[in-house]
Design a protein around this nucleic acid. Sequence first.
DNA 1: ACTTTATGGTCAGATAGGCTGACGATGTTG
DNA 2: CAACATCGTCAGCCTATCTGACCATAAAGT
Lengths: 148, 148
Amino acid sequence: MAQPHPAVLMFVSHRHVERQVLEHLWERGYDDITIAQGRIAARLGEHGSRLTELAEAAQVTKQTAGYLVDQLERAGYVERRPDPTDARARLVCLSDRGRAVQREARTVERRIAREWSRHLGAERYGELRTMLAELREITDPWWEGREA
Amino acid sequence: MAQPHPAVLMFVSHRHVERQVLEHLWERGYDDITIAQGRIAARLGEHGSRLTELAEAAQVTKQTAGYLVDQLERAGYVERRPDPTDARARLVCLSDRGRAVQREARTVERRIAREWSRHLGAERYGELRTMLAELREITDPWWEGREA
DNA sequence: ACTTTATGGTCAGATAGGCTGACGATGTTG
DNA sequence: CAACATCGTCAGCCTATCTGACCATAAAGT
């Protein structure tokens, strides 16, 4: 039988990571977070991000992003502050609670990265990361080479 | 700045492929297909698949899979036939129309595979596929090494 | 200055896609 | 043949997502 398309395999592994992170957070008591919220929260920059940026990064409409940020705000993970450089815009920033969750999530991600590295071998794992980054150049509609 | 976790990069590339396939199908007049339906249809075996199998492969509940198969059936892409070996079960099979769509989808997938291969180099692309397949062993909850 | 056009965000409404739980029918096992 | 497992459906619910319309502010053109 034909091997599945690489994209399908990516789907499987990506899903696995999302699940692991989410389940870890639930265990730690952050049991109100959903995958969709997580996808938004994971893309928050250190100094806050605009809604439109988040929407693009997570590949959803700004309405959807707004809806999810509402929830995250109500749950106390983020807050909206006025953007000093543009009166139309607002910056979505992590609260302390939000930062705590992000740390937890990063912990799981690192653990999985180690597992993958062990499974493939460190060198091949490095190659995998490099190739995925290169692929992004031709698959990410918002790719610019470097972030703002 | 830190490089994103490989899983995030996988998300981007996987999404890209889904989008490309879907848009191609829409252009070809199959404009009633959705991503979720596609995820189910893409996992249909040559001789039909049971609902439960489909659900597992697409990582959704059997209820959800049933809901999507209903739609595919109404649109004429698949049909349900009794499973000769088990009166409880039914086999979801592609119709001729469904097979035509699958061919279109495969065409796009092959095109993208060629693009990736060109971008990374044939040898590295092969390595990528190998590594993704290996990763599956530790990330796919339904992995068994070989299909039924 | 003053239009015009672009951008950031929200509101309203619709729908798809996903879940849990319960259930009927058939298979399987002791 | 009784007990338990599996296949699929029904019913009800909720979240995530979209499109379209809209307001406020900013930027660009004249």
